[in-house]
Simulated scan of single mutants.
Amino acid sequence: MRIGEEAPGTAAALPTGATGTDAERITAGIRSWVGSAPLRDLVGHFGGDWPDGDVAAVLAGLDDFSARHWDFRGGRERPDAREPAFDPATAGLVLATAAALGMVRPAEPAQPGYAHLVVLGGLAHACQRRVAYAAHLLRAGIRITGEVAVLGSFRPLSEVEHRDLAAAGVPPCDTEVAALDAAVRREFRVTAPAEDDGHDAAHPHHSWASRTYRPVGGPPVRVLAAPSGDPARRRAHTADTQRFWAGHVRLRAGDPVLMVTAPIYVPFQHCDALRTLAVPYGCVIETVGVDPALPDLAGLPEPTLTPGRYLQEIRSAIRSLRALHTALG
């Protein structure tokens, strides 16, 4: 069996590391996910030949293929991506592949407790759901010995995001981190931070902020806005926010860290966290997606996920896996 090829019906499993820095185990996980039968079938359906060679060559080939066939953003923000038109058979195959790759159904946390709970930012409506889900997990009995970290940036909100927040009854917010902060105040029933620090550089790519709230009877909740790692070219992205948080908290080898995002983003954001947190610090990463069916999330806006959105995020996962594999050296 060639590298990158799995037996038909093999479930796609995301890479993990026994101690966060187990390069061999992480590489095996990369090979398993990227070589899974559903992904191979999807590439074939879109007219692609499976790349030959080792894991690095397969990842490079899939990165190139997905850029040509599944990139509907073209450098734009996610809400501005075009939506392709697919026939019913193609749409069904895309959705089935996304489910097989762990991008559709939410999974509950596997452990009763963690060192830290990290909530990843995103579009304004996602910020509300993810923070609400984090609060739900704590009420459900998940133990956190360190802190809850809510990670975002000073990315300005779009008009669509403003309308989504207004429809959900959220007070007006100008930036992603403001939307996260509003959700933290509401869900954790806090009014003012115990610590407030930051730097206003008069530009969202350079500025940063850190606010720590101390809810009664629970772990501290830190809301961070990260600067961009490449401010001349782009805003802060997920990996920037994870690295920035790592600079504000003492991560120890073996620390279990639970990441919260949406199911569609679990593969790519999990692999970003392995690269930016597990590999350099030795912590252990588990990533789960919000369950939108929970009563605690009733009334919060939920976007419609389309075949085009899933293909775009399969591409994001491929690129994140490639960056992780490169980081392993």
Score class of each variant (00 low, 15 high):
residue 1 M to Q: 04
residue 140 A to S: 07
residue 31 R to D: 12
residue 310 Y to C: 05
residue 322 R to D: 11
residue 156 P to S: 14
residue 25 R to N: 09
residue 204 P to Y: 02
residue 172 P to V: 07
residue 93 L to N: 06
residue 21 T to L: 04
residue 317 A to V: 02
residue 13 A to Q: 15
residue 199 H to V: 01
residue 236 A to N: 06
residue 90 T to C: 14
residue 149 A to I: 05
residue 309 R to S: 10
residue 163 R to V: 01
residue 37 A to S: 07
residue 181 D to Q: 07
residue 123 L to K: 06
residue 264 I to V: 15
residue 144 I to H: 07
residue 174 D to V: 06
residue 146 G to C: 12
residue 220 P to Q: 04
residue 314 I to K: 11
residue 203 H to Q: 11
residue 123 L to M: 06
residue 219 P to D: 10
residue 81 A to H: 10
residue 146 G to L: 13
residue 184 V to E: 11
residue 201 A to I: 05
residue 179 A to W: 12
residue 79 P to V: 04
residue 245 W to D: 13
residue 145 T to N: 14
residue 43 V to H: 10
residue 266 V to C: 13
residue 202 A to N: 11
residue 239 A to F: 05
residue 271 C to R: 02
residue 51 P to V: 08
residue 162 H to Q: 15
residue 138 L to M: 08
residue 115 A to R: 14
residue 130 R to Q: 06
residue 61 G to H: 13
residue 198 G to I: 01
residue 243 R to G: 04
residue 137 L to F: 00
residue 246 A to Y: 06
residue 256 P to H: 14
residue 139 R to W: 08
residue 208 W to D: 10
residue 168 A to I: 09
residue 171 P to C: 11
residue 116 H to Y: 00
residue 173 C to N: 08
residue 316 S to F: 15
residue 245 W to M: 15
residue 252 R to Y: 08
residue 78 R to Y: 00
residue 200 D to N: 09
residue 118 V to T: 08
residue 7 A to L: 05
residue 242 Q to I: 02
residue 155 R to K: 12
residue 283 C to P: 02
residue 89 A to V: 05
residue 220 P to T: 05
residue 178 A to V: 09
residue 36 S to W: 01
residue 65 F to I: 08
residue 29 G to C: 03
residue 295 P to I: 03
residue 52 D to S: 04
residue 180 L to F: 12
residue 234 R to K: 04
residue 25 R to M: 13
residue 54 D to G: 13
residue 128 Q to L: 04
residue 182 A to E: 12
residue 218 G to D: 00
residue 121 G to A: 05
residue 136 H to Y: 10
residue 30 I to H: 04
residue 64 D to K: 07
residue 263 P to W: 04
residue 185 R to W: 01
residue 99 A to R: 15
residue 231 P to R: 07
residue 173 C to Q: 13
residue 225 A to G: 05
residue 307 P to N: 15
